[in-house]
Structure formats: C-alpha cells, structure tokens
Write a protein that binds this DNA or RNA. Structure first.
Lengths: 344, 344
DNA sequence: TTTGGCACTCGTGCGTGCAGAGTGCCAGGG
DNA sequence: CCCTGGCACTCTGCACGCACGAGTGCCAAA
C-alpha cells in the first residue's frame, strides 16, 4: 500500500542525507557499513546497500570505482538542499561576532571590505560581495563644480554612499549662475529618485534654459546620463581565496580554473546576477554557467538597506560544502549588512 | 698570478649564471654534464664539478640531496641579479602591445586595472599595482555641499583623478554664504598644493570667520585633514593569482601562505613600501620580511606622472623566476603608466 | 690546472603481494 | 513483500624490494 512506498522513500532520503553529511565531513566516499554505524538508521548495511543501488540508479549518488563508497552527484546535492536540509541559524555568539565586526565600519568601502572578510572567515571559503549597484539605488545629491571656464566637474552621490565623478568639457564658457540654476533644477527633480528613472525626469530640462546655454546643459546632462547608466562600474570585492587550498589534494586542476574565474569581474557579476533577488540561491556544480566553476557551488543572496535588495553577496566553495552552515552564514551576514546600510 | 685567479672566478660566475638560467627553464636540479652540453663552456664536466663544489662552499648553490643536481640559493639569485644579469628590454611588438593596451583607459580605476592585468599577463605571474598615493599627489579641487541644515558633504579631488568623500556633521546650521566663502578660501589656498602641506596652509582659516561660524569651520577642516592624512586608503590592485598554480607540484604548501599574504593589503603595502623610489628593487626569498613570501621574489619599481614617483607597482613570483625578463616587463610597464598619467 | 675514470650514493619508477573496504547477489526468515 | 546475513568478487592503497639512472666526489695522469 501507499504507506509502505512512502516509508521506503523516506528511508532512501535519509540514506541520501546521511551520505551527503558524511561525505562533506570526511571528504571520502562513504560505504554502507560506516553509514549505519555513524547514523542510527535502524537497518542493516545490506538494506542500505539496496537503497544505495536505487539512489545510484536514479542518479543521486555515484561510485568513483567499482567497490568504493558512494559520492553524491550534483543532482544528489540539489535534492539535499531542496528537501533534506534546513538553513542552520547562527549561534548567538556568532551573531554577536558578526554585529561587532561590522559595526566598526566607517564608509561604504569599509562596509564591503569588512563584509567580504567576515563572510570568508565564517564559511572558510571564498566570499564575494557586490557593491550596492547604481541601478537600484537612488540619487542623494548631484553636484556641479566649475573647475575652469569650460570645464565642469560632476559628482553623483547615491543613497548607498557611493560617489561617481566625471569631468565635463563644455562647448563654451559656463556662467556660474547658469550652473547654479542647472544644479538646483537637477537636484529638485532627481533627488530621491532611482537612478534609471532620472534621465526621463530631466529630459525636458534644456528647454528651460536660454538657447545659448542649451548646448552646455545638454552636454552636462549627457555625461550625467552616462554616469547613471554605467553598469561597468559594478564593482565586486573578493576575499578568502587562500581557503581554496583546503579543497582537495587533486589541486592544480581544481584550483586553477577557479582562480581564473575569480579574476574575471564579468564572470562574478554574471554569477551573482543569477541570484533571484530576495531568496537565497544555490547553484551546484554544473548548474553554474561558467565552465571553470563546474566543480564548485555558489550560495548567494541579495542584500539591501530596507526591505529591498540593492546588491548581492555570496560564497563560492566546493560542491562538497556544508550547505546548511554556509547558507546560514550567508543569510545572517546579508541581514546585518542590510541593517548597517539602512542605519547610515 | 692575479690574472689566473680572475680567470677562475669568471668561469665560476659563468657556471652560476648557467645554473640559474637552466634551473629557471627546467625547474629541475641541474647537473654538471647537462650544463656543459647546453652551454658551450669550453671545459669538461669534471671541471664544472669542481667549480660547483666551490660555489656550494660559498653558499651560492645547494643540492637537495646527495647526488642530485644543484639549485641556486637565494644568495645565488642575488649574485645573479646584481652582477650577472641585465634587464632584458621589451621587444618592439611587446612595447606596442603595452602601449595599445593601456591607451584605451578612461579613468584612474581603469588605468590601474589595465596595468595590473597587463603586468600579470606579460610576466605570467602575480602583479600588484598601488594606486597613486594621496601623500604625493596635489589638490585639484575641494568641494563643499550642504546636504541638510547641519550636514555638509566634503569632496576632495586630486591631480591623479582620485576622489575622496566625507560626510561632516556640523555643530550647528550652516549658512550657504559661509559655506561658499569657506569653499573659495580653501580652494584658493589649497589648490595645486601637495596633500600633506595643505593643513599647514589652512591652519589660520577659522580666524577669518565670525566667532559664531568658527566651530563649523573647524569641524569641516578637521574632517578634511583627516581625509588628507588617511594613509589607510592606500589601495592596491592585484591580478594574476591564477598564475600561482604554475609554480610547483608541491602545491598547497607553497601557494597557501602566498595567497594569504596577498589578501592582506597591509602586507602588500609594506612590500611595495620597501621599494626605493626610483630604482628597481628585487627582493629574493628570505629577503622578504613577510614569512609567507619566503619562497617568492618581489620585483618592484616606482612609477609616476612626470619624473616623480607617486606610487609603486611590481610582480610577485617564485624565486626561480626569469629575472631579466620580469624586470624588463616591470620597467616597461612602469614607464608607460607614467606617461599615461602625465598625459591625462 | 684540467681531465678522464671509477666507485658510491640516492631518488625514482615499477612490479608484486597483501590487507581492507565495499559491493552485488542470493537464499532464508519474518 | 521486504529485510537480513553470508559469501565471493573487485578494486584501491600501501609496503616492499629491486634495478636503473643521474649525479657526485675523489684520484691519478696529462
């Protein structure tokens, strides 16, 4: 009857869970006998073997050679993460440590640096933190400064504390009054607005000026729009690469492509980009688009000041990682960073 | 007679040079026979053996085990670099490639990023580039912006294109006229001056204001001085860590401490700090203060816009590196970066 | 001072053999 | 129908021994 089938399935899942846990701990293929000894499943090794055969049939585990223990496959880890594991909450000393470590930060750079280090240390893996991205943040202030008769400096400050600066070469001399007028008009319209919305709001601004000044106004605005749009500037901070050395003993092969991937900001950005905004995302092994990261997993999540995510952070480690613990650390750090950003 | 002694010494040096060159090429201990075959020293292996024994006696080379070939010691490399090697100039296609690669840069960040990548690629090692440091650069402009009645934003722009930004909480409401006055006074005095000199020039500024405004002025100045002094902000950019995997097969042991060192900006800064300004510096093996870098060498040199060095850059690689080539690449890149900075 | 010869030392690679771990399958019991 | 104990089989890892080659140091002769 149905109850029996479920009973069976439940045990298989328990076996899979046990395999994942043991393998993550020991880094060695795990056999039936060791399994029943370490976890008290109430059955004999032989029974476990049958279950293992079934699990292997379904592609959740795999044995490196005949008559070695089993290793979880990407699919096995996936099932584990989706159904069998719960995010492990941080202990309260850990939470206190996180808070303490992040509280000393003085500016945005410092927040990001501290965060990425903390995350690397907590998870003992490679940590990645994206700077709060321009597109989701809002304008706090835009400043125009005349540096020379036809040279204006434009400074854009966002609510996340980020500062972008551009030089503008104007077509002609710029009067201080025009500049002041432009500055105040820009700020009344743009302040508090999301960056991508700003160009639309300023579109008709040149019309408010005398014909002689319009080229200048347009030039300044063009530069501003460029700065607003510049996705390039999505910076990323990295830490904990030394933790890669703990991975395996089959080293250079594993570590080299990973290091190469980590040097490519583009790859990292795309990696984090795949994170669905609010929820934690786990990409396991070959689920990662980038080839060099085929034997690693990426755990990432959005963070932000307030309830909205302005950027992402995460951890990159071997597929055989402690998923519950890593996810717990990532979630906790993301939350605290969000709080810090909201406070400042 | 003296001539004979010199003759002998010359040959020993030639042997040392040959050993270094071969070992750098093959990464394997080099024996007497292979040596006479590959370089045409006009003598027999036995003679070379005698010379090798003498070189070993003096501590320039060393054998891993009895009856293996010899490998150079740190002292041997040192002699090689000081007396036996000449910096290898870049070929003209290489020079063109460097120029082409760097010419596309749009701002300071971009220059540094491109430089570090280029250097890593040219030398196939780990490259390090320090941002032009604040202390040596001059003030281009200082801007003050009122964000709220008692909140002022201070922006410091240097001649190297760097932007520092600080929030200032003032003791009381700040009038726009006072702010404008302060702004213009600061700029007339500070513009074009070297950062460390600025505090001295602004010292007596509060006296020029009415008593009521002096606290505000002092607060703003204090923050400005802090920003000027903040050596912390000496940033460093890194690239080419993946090249570490080429080092040896004795891996994790070598690579781990190096990766750890590379994550510590402080260590890197001190490393570059040891560079004597103009001349190229080579630190070999244990000459490096930091323990984790005991089996690496650091080649570094200052670079700058104009004839003065504003920051440093360099390469970190195994002691068994191609010194002439590496030094050539480092020198060439430093020169071109200097030119780029001077142009912009 | 250089050279050729010779004995010696060691590290490396390879084949063998053995122990251990783990599996798959099968027949019996609940 | 599912679980269990037993059994034969396979494969890895490791230790051992051996021969080989590379390289040395020393010595006597040119």
């Amino acid at each position: 009857m149905a109850g029996e089938v479920r009973q069976l399935d439940d045990r298989k899942l328990a076996v899979l869970r046990a395999i994942v846990q043991d393998y993550v701990g020991t880094e060695e293929p795990v056999g039936s006998k060791a399994l029943v000894e370490r976890h008290n499943l109430g059955v004999s090794p032989a029974t476990v073997r049958n279950d293992m055969a079934a699990l292997e049939e379904e592609g959740y585990i795999h044995q490196p050679h005949t008559s070695a223990g089993r290793i979880p496959t990407d699919k096995g880890y996936r099932l584990f993460v989706d159904k069998l594991a719960e995010i492990k909450p941080m202990s309260s000393p850990e939470r206190r440590a996180i808070r303490h470590f992040l509280d000393g930060a003085v500016d945005l750079d410092d927040v990001v640096t501290r965060t990425v280090r903390l995350l690397a240390q907590l998870t003992r893996q490679v940590a990645v933190v994206q700077y709060p991205s321009l597109t989701r943040s809002t304008v706090r202030h835009i400043e125009l400064v005349a540096l020379a008769p036809a040279k204006v400096m434009l400074v854009l400050i966002t609510n996340t504390g980020r500062v972008e600066q551009r030089m503008v070469d104007c077509p002609g001399t710029v009067g201080e009054t025009v500049l002041a007028d432009l500055r105040s008009r820009i700020n009344t319209r743009a302040a508090g607005q999301r960056l991508p919305d700003v160009p639309g709001l300023l579109e008709e601004l040149p019309a408010a000026f005398e014909a002689a000044d319009r080229p200048t106004v347009s030039t300044v605005l063009a530069t501003l729009f460029e700065a607003l749009a510049e996705q390039n500037e999505e910076r990323i901070m990295l830490a904990g690469t030394a933790n890669l050395t703990r991975f395996g003993h089959d080293f250079p092969l594993t570590i080299q492509p990973v290091l190469e991937a980590l040097e490519e900001q583009v790859v990292l950005l795309r990696l984090l980009g795949e994170t669905t905004d609010a929820a934690m995302t786990v990409r396991i092994g070959r689920e990662n688009a980038y080839e060099g990261l085929n034997s690693t997993s990426v755990v990432s999540v959005g963070y932000g000041s307030g309830d909205e995510s302005v950027a992402k952070l995460g951890v990159i480690g071997p597929t055989r990682m402690d998923y519950p613990g890593t996810m717990g650390a990532v979630r906790a750090v993301a939350r605290y960073v969000g709080q810090i950003l909201a406070e400042s």
